[in-house]
C-alpha cells in the first residue's frame, strides 16, 4: 500500500491504493451475492426443496433482486429509538466486516496491507464486530433486540477467547504474525499444510493442529452467530434478536456484514490451516490453476461446510453454549498453546 505512495508520488499513489481497495471490495461483494445464493440453495437441497429458482437462470440473480428490493424500501426508525446510534450500528457491522479483509492474502503479493501483526489485526477487528450488534440492540429501545444483543455480547466474547488461543498456536508454529508468512510456511503440498504438520516441527504436531482446527471451526460458527449458535437471532424465542426493528438498507448492511464475516472466517481457516493459495500437490496439473482460484476453491468449500452445518444441526441451548465455550474449548486450546510452545522450544533446541 505505502509502496504506491513511494512509487507514484502522493497523489497518484493514493489514487492507486484507493482503486485497489475499491476493486477488492467490488469483487468481495459480487462473490458474496453468489455465496448467499449458494447458502440458500444448499439449505434448500438438504430439505429437498428447489430454493430460489425464478430470477435469472437457476435463480442466479436472486441476490441482486433482493438487493434492489432492500434498497427501495423505506427506512423505519422506531419511536423512542436512539436515532444516530440506531443507524450507526449496521454501518459499524458493515465497515468492520470489510476492513478485516485488508490483511488477508488471496494470492502471492495480492494483499492490500501486508502488515507484521496481521493475525492480531484480524483478531482485533473481529472482536469489534460485537459492537454493531450490541449498539443496534440497545438503540432499538425494544425488549427482544436488547435481549438478543446481550446474549450475543456474552457469546461472542466467550468464543473469542478460544479463537485467540488457536491463533496463538498457529503463530507459534510459524514464528510470525504476518499472514503472508503463515501461508508461505505451508508451501509444497497438502502434507505441509498446518492441518497436518506444524512446518518444521516433528510429525506428531497434527495431534494438536487437527483439534485446534475443529475448535476454530466451531468457534467461528459461534463468533458469526451461525446455526447451531444463532441464539442472538433465535427466531422461535427472540423473533430475530437484535435485528427485529431493522428494515430495508440498515437490515441489508447487517446481513452483508454478517455474511462477510462468515466468508472471512472461511478465508482465515484457508490461510491458517489449509495452505492459503497453495495447491494440494506441487506438480503440473495442479500448478496450472492460478493461486487465487485455489484460494477461492478452499473458501467456497468451507462456506459449503458452514451451509451444511446450518441445515443439519439443531440450535444449542444457551447454558450448553457457555459450557462448551468455557469448560471445553478454553482449557483444550490453552493446553494446546502450552504443548505447542514446549514443542517449538524443544525442536529449536534439538
Amino acid at each position: 500500500m505505502y509502496d504506491f505512495v513511494t512509487q507514484y508520488g502522493p497523489l497518484w499513489g493514493t489514487l492507486a491504493a484507493v482503486g485497489q481497495i475499491l476493486a477488492f471490495v467490488i469483487v468481495l461483494l459480487l462473490s458474496l451475492a453468489f455465496l448467499l445464493l449458494m447458502d440458500r440453495k444448499v439449505w434448500a437441497a438438504v430439505q429437498m426443496r428447489k430454493g430460489p429458482n425464478t430470477v435469472g437462470a437457476f435463480g442466479l440473480l436472486q441476490s441482486f433482486a433482493d438487493f434492489i428490493k432492500f434498497v427501495l424500501k423505506e427506512i423505519i426508525v422506531p419511536a423512542g429509538a436512539d436515532r444516530p446510534l440506531f443507524l450507526l450500528a449496521p454501518l459499524l457491522t458493515f465497515i468492520f466486516a470489510f476492513i478485516a479483509w485488508a490483511v488477508i492474502p488471496v494470492a502471492p503479493g495480492w494483499v492490500i496491507s501486508d502488515i507484521n501483526v496481521g493475525i492480531l489485526y484480524v483478531f482485533a477487528i473481529s472482536s469489534l464486530g460485537v459492537y454493531g450488534i450490541i449498539i443496534g440492540g440497545w438503540a432499538s429501545n425494544s425488549k427482544y433486540p436488547f435481549l438478543g444483543s446481550l446474549r450475543s455480547a456474552a457469546q461472542m466474547v466467550s468464543y473469542e477467547v478460544s479463537i485467540g488461543f488457536v491463533l496463538v498456536t498457529v503463530l507459534l508454529m510459524v514464528g510470525s504474525m504476518n499472514l503472508t508468512a503463515v501461508v508461505d510456511a505451508q508451501a509444497g503440498g497438502f502434507w505441509n499444510w498446518h492441518l497436518l504438520s506444524a512446518g518444521m516441527l516433528p510429525w506428531p504436531a497434527f495431534l494438536i493442529t487437527i483439534p485446534m482446527f475443529v475448535i476454530f471451526f466451531i468457534s467461528a460458527l459461534a463468533e458469526t452467530n451461525r446455526p447451531p449458535f444463532d441464539l442472538p437471532e433465535a427466531e422461535s424465542e427472540l423473533v430475530a434478536g437484535y435485528q427485529v426493528e431493522y428494515s430495508s438498507t440498515p437490515y441489508l448492511l447487517f446481513m452483508i456484514g454478517e455474511y462477510l464475516n462468515i466468508v472471512l472466517m472461511c478465508a482465515l481457516m484457508t490461510v491458517l490451516f489449509f495452505g492459503g493459495w497453495h495447491p494440494p500437490f506441487d506438480i503440473a496439473p495442479f500448478t496450472w490453476i492460478p493461486p487465487v482460484v485455489w484460494f477461492a476453491i478452499k473458501v467456497v468449500f468451507f462456506f459449503f461446510m458452514f451451509a451444511m452445518v446450518k441445515a443439519l444441526v439443531p440450535r444449542y441451548r444457551y447454558d450448553q453454549l457457555m459450557r462448551l465455550g468455557w469448560k471445553i474449548f478454553l482449557p483444550t486450546s490453552l493446553a494446546a498453546v502450552a504443548v505447542m510452545g514446549g514443542f517449538v522450544v524443544y525442536s529449536n533446541a534439538g
Binding site: 501483526v117 492480531l120 489485526y121 483478531f123 482485533a124 472482536s127 469489534l128 460485537v130 459492537y131 450490541i134 455480547a153 466474547v157 473469542e160 485467540g164
Partner: peptide
C-alpha cells in the same frame, strides 16, 4: 493491536 483486543474488544464490551 493489544489495546484494541483487550480494552475495546473485551473490557469495554463488558
Amino acid at each position: 493491536m493489544i489495546l484494541v483486543i483487550v480494552y475495546v474488544g473485551a473490557v469495554a464490551v463488558l
